[in-house]
Design a protein around this nucleic acid. Structure first.
Lengths: 115, 115
DNA sequence: ATATTACATGAGTATATAGTTATATAGAAA
DNA sequence: TTTCTATATAACTATATACTCATGTAATAT
């Protein structure tokens, strides 16, 4: 396994790691319909301000979101639209795995799908 | 945020978590061309037998791979082909983000792409 | 029966990270 | 300037998890 491959695997793992947290998925889902400031994301996610700020910093570091500071507020938005395609794939997979009533999840899952 | 949504986010996060580890990505990459037993995966990944076994158990728990025990050997194979599609998406994204020479990674990245 | 091969797993350690609390900083308003 | 609002961050705690080492278990071979 070459050094280059090692680095590539590390990068890919770090990318998935950013998506591997329910609170961060909530935040990303909250950004689906456009930019939002931190206070709005705190309300949407139900987390504390400090915790949401930290997750936003992590997501920004992973280049999944971008920050636009206007006045005293910080507006975050999706930097990488393929996030939703990833989630859509995973949702489809999970839905087909789970033996629960898929129809019950239809609204949510279709909301997570980009196309 | 409904209880159903909470569960869904947890599921999706857990799925990504399974992919968020370089050693597991190596193992999954090693399974790209078909089933392999543990010893083979140990060689391919460069990990210890104990550690590879544990990662295999985790991947199986996440339903990404399946196990077929034949004689004294355990053959693992991909249970969820969409893994590679996920990796392909992430690879493309990372490649376009990184300011490194993409051509240098071409072989690896194309190897990770399903189509 | 004993040994060997292949794999799984428990115990223990080290590290990473999610969350909380308190505080810092920066812009806007009074 | 002082105050208020919005956000970021440091310090800390708790938990999860990656890894190693040792051992357990099961199938095969001698």
């Amino acid at each position: 396994m070459s050094q280059l491959d090692e680095q590539a695997f590390n990068h890919i793992a770090k990318y998935f790691q950013a998506l591997a947290e329910p609170m961060r998925l909530k935040i990303l889902n909250g950004l689906r319909d456009g930019e939002k400031n931190v206070t709005e994301l705190v309300e949407i996610s139900g987390g504390t301000q400090a915790n949401v700020s930290k997750h936003l910093a992590l997501l920004r570091d992973a280049k999944l979101i971008k920050r636009d500071s206007r006045g005293t507020k910080a507006y975050y938005s999706i930097a990488d639209q393929c996030i939703y395609e990833l989630c859509s794939l995973v949702c489809g997979q999970i839905a087909s795995q789970m033996s629960i009533d898929v129809a019950a999840n239809a609204a949510f899952i279709s909301a997570l799908k980009t196309n």
